[in-house]
Design a protein around this nucleic acid. Structure first.
Length: 107
DNA sequence: ACCGTGACTCTGC
DNA sequence: TGCAGAGCCACGG
């Protein structure tokens, strides 16, 4: 029997997979698209459970300010940033990318 | 059941 | 621009 929480994780991952290369989404938006408005923290938890070799583009999810908030220190952060830059996303001077330009929205 | 903690977000100063 | 407060969902001691 599959736990409800697992089903929710699956739904969240499915939404994340829809984010195209070169675009990003926020924890809050992913939560809403997964049918869980207000559960941004739940999204972070779902991504935390992903294996290191996953094909799910977890790096395309940033916070509402366009900043990288992954745990694991500068290592993990620099890796995520490198992946995003590799897809053509430009961070510029600050630690945040421009959601205005790169934010993805369905429809 | 209570409380602390966390890949969050919004509001207000 | 930055920081504190409060609200948020979920987990573990």
């Amino acid at each position: 029997m599959a736990s409800r929480q697992i089903d929710i994780d699956q739904r969240i991952w499915q939404v994340v997979m829809l984010i195209p290369p070169g675009k990003v989404s926020t924890y809050g938006d992913v939560a809403r698209m997964a049918g869980l408005p207000g559960a941004a923290r739940r999204v972070g938890r779902a991504l935390r459970g992903l294996p290191g070799d996953t094909l799910i583009p977890w790096h395309r999810v940033v916070n509402a300010q366009g900043r990288i908030v992954v745990p694991g220190g500068d290592d993990a952060r620099s890796e995520q940033r490198a992946r995003l830059e590799g897809e053509g996303i430009h961070f510029g001077r600050g630690p945040a990318l421009s959601l205005r330009k790169y934010r993805w929205r369905p429809g």
